[in-house]
Amino acid sequence: MVDNHTPLNHPVITAASRKMKPDIHIPYLYVDMGAAVICASFMSFGVKRRWFALAAAVQLAISTYASYVGEQVYYGEWLKVRMYSRALAIIGGFLILASGAGEVYRQKPRSRSLQSTGQVFLGVYLICMVYSLQHSKEDRQVYLNHIVGGEVTLMLLEVVFGILALAFLSGCYIRLAAQILATILPLIILLIDGNIGYWHHTRKVEFWNQMKLIGHNVGIFAAVLILATDG
């Protein structure tokens, strides 16, 4: 997709680049989709959930890397931050699931190393959110359209996200930090991500891409809920 802030004479924009392209080359795209469906199916039925959660984390890491290096589609820098930070957080969520966190009847002890790694990924995601609110006028504008207090409230949000990031990165007060984030994320999903008109029509984010970003944030919310109840 083409960012609306990119000039029409940008060297990346050609007749071919205006056509819809997947982020990954077609043969590998089908393999990636098949792997995702298999991992999701086994996790849903609770069959070797830890193993398939770990496999899903590896699969998503590979597909995200392939998308990044393939450069099939041009994205603006602000959109790259949104996309790749959420993908990283979803990988962290899979690692948290693979650690055994959230299991009602845990037959094996949880892997604290996997959980800690997943928490670090969530912390990096929150740092990227702070970065976007500070440096991305696209992100700043959509927040300012929906919060009371303008720049002051936006600054407070940046501080909150920064503190939560430190909690996840350090491993301190994880359950409390997850509970706070679990309270904030639904509002972000509904008011910020759910503003399809702003992202799709004003900022020229492809509809499918915005749906993917919403899905990623829902997945992040699920991972945070696990930590909020079993952190």
Rank of each mutant, 00 (worst) to 15 (best):
H10M: 00
H10E: 00
H10P: 04
P11L: 09
P11K: 12
V12G: 14
V12F: 15
I13S: 04
T14V: 13
T14H: 15
A16T: 13
S17F: 10
S17E: 09
S17P: 10
R18N: 13
K19Q: 15
K19N: 13
K19F: 15
M20A: 14
K21F: 13
K21I: 11
K21R: 14
P22N: 12
D23K: 08
D23P: 04
I24M: 05
I24R: 07
I24P: 02
H25S: 11
H25P: 06
I26W: 06
I26N: 00
I26T: 10
Y28A: 08
Y28S: 07
Y28K: 11
L29H: 06
L29C: 08
Y30E: 15
V31F: 00
V31G: 00
M33E: 15
M33V: 12
M33F: 15
M33S: 07
M33R: 15
M33K: 15
G34M: 10
A35I: 04
V37I: 07
V37F: 04
I38Q: 08
C39K: 01
C39I: 03
A40Q: 05
S41E: 04
S41T: 08
S41L: 02
F42Y: 04
F42M: 03
F42D: 04
F42A: 02
M43P: 06
M43E: 06
F45L: 15
F45P: 04
F45S: 12
F45I: 11
V47A: 08
V47I: 14
K48Q: 15
K48H: 14
K48Y: 14
R49E: 11
R49V: 13
R50Q: 06
W51S: 02
W51Q: 07
W51T: 06
F52D: 02
F52G: 07
F52L: 00
F52Y: 05
F52W: 02
A53L: 01
A53I: 05
A53T: 09
A53F: 01
L54I: 04
L54N: 05
L54G: 05
L54Y: 01
A55S: 06
A56L: 03
A56M: 12
A56T: 00
A56F: 00
A57R: 03
A57K: 09
A57L: 02
V58G: 06
V58E: 02
Q59A: 10
Q59K: 01
L60Y: 04
L60A: 09
A61L: 10
I62G: 00
I62M: 07
S63W: 08
S63C: 11
T64W: 03
T64S: 06
Y65C: 14
Y65P: 05
Y65H: 08
Y65K: 10
A66V: 01
A66P: 05
A66R: 10
A66Y: 01
A66G: 00
A66W: 06
S67F: 05
G70T: 02
G70M: 03
G70P: 09
E71K: 12
E71Q: 14
E71C: 14
Q72Y: 02
Q72K: 05
